[in-house]
Design a protein around this nucleic acid. Structure first.
Lengths: 334, 334
DNA sequence: CGCCTCATCTGCAACGATGTATTCCATCAC
DNA sequence: GTGATGGAATACATCGTTGCAGATGAGGCG
């Protein structure tokens, strides 16, 4: 069996509790005793049983991360950053894939998963704020991604409106006037889709360009969603000289479909996205997009969640910090 | 505080142990009693404390997954599949990013991480077989990815040699004769790089085409590695009419650089990769590659590991199943 | 009627750590 | 010399579950 504190204690000729004190850096231990214990630990190859510690202390030092699917590049990259940030602060991350289904999201919020984690980072896609608050209970929770917005919930915000406006303005400045938007429906006002659409509209308005609902095409935020959407748009005969994909994956899908159909990008049609996933830089042509501050988001979210977990006093003010964004101009929309 | 079994027991008017028995589906419980307990559980909103269960039972129902970084698409997609396979069998997955560093890999194998998991899925990149065996000890362990090969270790194999030969043969059949290989160095014989290179050489030999070491360029298996490598090759003036990237990421990086430099793909240069990541299908031109059976790999690995974990008798024969591969012909090398 | 069987349920002792309270002893002030 | 001080180590209970052994009691059988 595994070596326990008891074995170490016996080997070092001290009490079990002294071993515990050494391990937890208790201040008042005679250096000689400490050394004796450390030697015994070394010799026996002792390792603390984290399960036992968790049970006794009530802390698991694990953060839950609930997202749709790791095969979606933006989530994978975000998860990677989150894990690094958590690791640096002594926490591990347990990932749960919701597959974008309400049942799975709910299960992750209230299920047994919770008892394994000290708090949850949650990228909601299917549940709304009310459902989240209901399901989550009192457990520390920080939201990311902003499909949901609510003054009662901690979350790290992306500047959806401003960043989308920046992308749109860039396209307008390059002389584009008929900018198609993929990934939202006319009339959306909430969620990332609504906020990004409103940024788009604000930029149009500022440039005195009329908004045309026919240019707004809803679709899944995935590569094939973007490809489908652009195909529908082309088939419908609506004229456009630029495409703004509300995330990179669908922008890249659209880009692919445009090239397959023989369109010249950026000559005939400029293409821009949102997220700045690694892939965007190496697409051909490389994709103009906006970096929403992924690493900053990861770090702020982890920090915020850990602050919540470690603060004893329950009444912390709700925080909703915003990450800085940055336009990345590349070949697809110079 | 949280509701415990004791609370449920009191509410249902039975002993704590009976509650435990109900939860664990013990056979001999009167239906009426069972119902009473279930009602109490429901009413109080009881949830088993997994930490306590783990401590008592010695099982955590978690699998560790050690890989370089989730921001690498193939690993992210593989991780996604592994999590789904594990979940379906009642296990969770705890991911640890090694960043491709030996120290981190070793730490993951022997560190505290281990005490949280029942077994480890490991994609080794820095450690060799001997070091792995030393570091891992007796804990159930299944390797993936084959940078390491050893008859003493369980692992799920990719048919590196055959799949690489299939890609090469495809390029040869299309009339290409000067096929550059990116991601291996002349003389490599072990690891994915060596095995894939030997598949390449075997296909050349079978077609009677001479092997030219000048066409073999080592580089990181990442997008920028591929871009760099192809730049070096172009600058060196070595002639070539096809590129075989030993994984998709670097093939896509190479593809990008070729297009930037004004090469016609596939006209002047055909490009093929290895992995069939989602991105390959939507690249422009879309990338010809070989699918190594990612989902099958994930499932076999999880299955094998769980079998190891749950088998009491220690002497199971080492298993090294092979996943089936499939060539995916697309635009970049028709 | 007594004994055995067996479904059903219970009590107690762990699992391996940590928190609290306590003891022990050397030092120091007066 | 005595009481106060405080560093250093310890004992014991405890976290919430499960394994094991045992109690209970209804029914079957000779």
């Amino acid at each position: 069996m595994a070596v326990t504190m008891n074995d170490v204690a016996r080997a070092a000729g001290v009490s079990l509790k002294t071993v515990s004190n050494v391990i937890n850096n208790y201040e008042f231990i005679r250096p000689t005793t400490k050394q004796r214990v450390l030697d015994a630990i070394d010799e026996l190859g002792y390792e603390t049983n984290l399960t036992a510690r968790s049970l006794r202390s009530g802390k698991t030092s694990m953060l839950g991360l609930v997202l749709a699917d790791l095969s979606i590049p933006f989530y994978a990259e975000l998860a990677s950053d989150i894990m690094k940030a958590a690791w640096a602060r002594g926490y591990r991350v347990l990932v749960e894939q919701s597959g974008n289904e309400a049942d799975h999201e709910r299960a992750a919020l209230q299920g047994q998963f919770r008892s394994l984690t000290d708090g949850l980072l949650f990228i909601p896609l299917a549940l709304d704020a009310e459902q989240i608050i209901q399901a989550a209970g009192a457990k520390p929770l920080v939201l990311l991604g902003e499909f949901v917005q609510d003054p009662r919930l901690d979350m790290v915000l992306i500047q959806n409106h401003q960043a989308a406006a920046a992308v749109t303005s860039h396209l307008l400045a390059a002389g584009r006037r008929r900018i198609a938007v993929l990934g939202a429906n006319d009339g959306d006002t909430t969620g990332s889709n609504g906020l990004r659409l409103s940024g788009y509209r604000a930029a149009l308005a500022a440039a005195g360009v009329e908004y045309d609902p026919a240019l707004v095409v809803g679709c899944d935020w995935r590569r094939d969603g973007g490809a489908d959407a652009i195909a529908r748009l082309l088939d419908s005969g609506v004229a456009f000289d630029a495409v703004f994909g509300l995330n990179d994956a669908l922008a890249l899908g659209a880009l692919h479909e445009l090239l397959v159909r023989g369109k010249d990008v950026p000559g005939e049609v400029a293409v821009a996205g949102f997220d700045d996933i690694d892939e965007a830089r190496f697409a051909s042509p490389s994709l103009t997009t906006v970096a929403p501050g992924r690493t900053e988001i990861a770090e702020r979210a982890v920090e915020l969640l850990i602050e919540r977990i470690e603060s004893k006093d329950a009444v912390l003010k709700v925080q909703q910090p915003e990450a800085a964004f940055e336009l990345r101009v590349r070949q697809s929309a110079p």
